[in-house]
Simulated scan of single mutants.
Amino acid sequence: MTRWLLWTLAGLLVGLLVHLTTIIAMPRLSGQTGFQRAAAIAPLGRFVALPADRTPLPLPDPAIVTGFCRYDLSEGPAHIHVPLNAGFLSVSFYTAEGLNFYTLTDRAAANGALDMTLFTLAQLAEIRAKQGPDLPGALRLQAPVPTGLILVRALIPEPTQQAEVERALVPATCR
């Protein structure tokens, strides 16, 4: 009886060790990160819409149109302009490693669009020294690293409005 119990306990410990090792090692062993896959789809500084029926994302929500833009702040700040549509809209900022560092929704919009500028710490300090503190109409964000992704998600209120929501994301800019 004790021999059976020892073998069972040993099997559970080996299974737990293999499971934990796999979970910890998989991100380091994977061939491409999301940032690298995005680089194959779109150039730097340009929004690309990924409709739910034609997206490389796994298990996409059919009621969401996703758009993304890769940015690199080494040449200067990135100015982001996202026009609003009739439904819910969110803008999320990610590092190249996938860390989400800022998110805002359509409720933060002024004049029918979300306008913001993304800076590195040094760039933000320089602009604040020249122009003073932040102004209500100029949203300034600090990125923890110079490269990353900006992800826009727009809700499709009705299935017949999918093309309209996709067209609404076309004028979005990221320069």
Rank of each mutant, 00 (worst) to 15 (best):
S74F: 15
P60A: 01
A122L: 05
L84Q: 10
V152E: 03
A125G: 12
A113Q: 15
A63C: 02
P77Y: 12
S90R: 06
Q161G: 05
P157D: 01
L151N: 10
D134A: 14
A52E: 04
T105Y: 07
E75L: 15
V48M: 04
F47S: 01
R70D: 05
F119G: 13
P146V: 03
G132D: 08
T160V: 15
L139R: 08
F93Y: 15
G98E: 09
Q142F: 02
E97C: 00
L121M: 02
A110L: 11
A49W: 11
P62G: 04
K130H: 02
A108G: 04
A78I: 14
P77N: 10
I80H: 06
P136V: 02
Q161D: 15
F101Y: 13
A109Y: 14
A52K: 01
P51S: 03
L99T: 13
A63F: 03
H79D: 14
F119N: 13
P56V: 08
G45N: 07
P144M: 09
A40M: 05
P43H: 01
G67W: 00
A110F: 14
L44R: 05
P159A: 04
Y94L: 09
E97N: 10
V65T: 13
Y71K: 05
T66Q: 12
G132V: 10
P77R: 14
R107Q: 15
R70Y: 03
A125D: 14
A113C: 05
I80Q: 08
P58M: 10
R46E: 12
E97V: 00
Q142A: 05
A122D: 13
V91C: 10
R70E: 08
V91K: 11
T105D: 12
G45V: 04
Q142E: 13
P58S: 04
A96Q: 13
L73R: 02
I150M: 04
A40S: 13
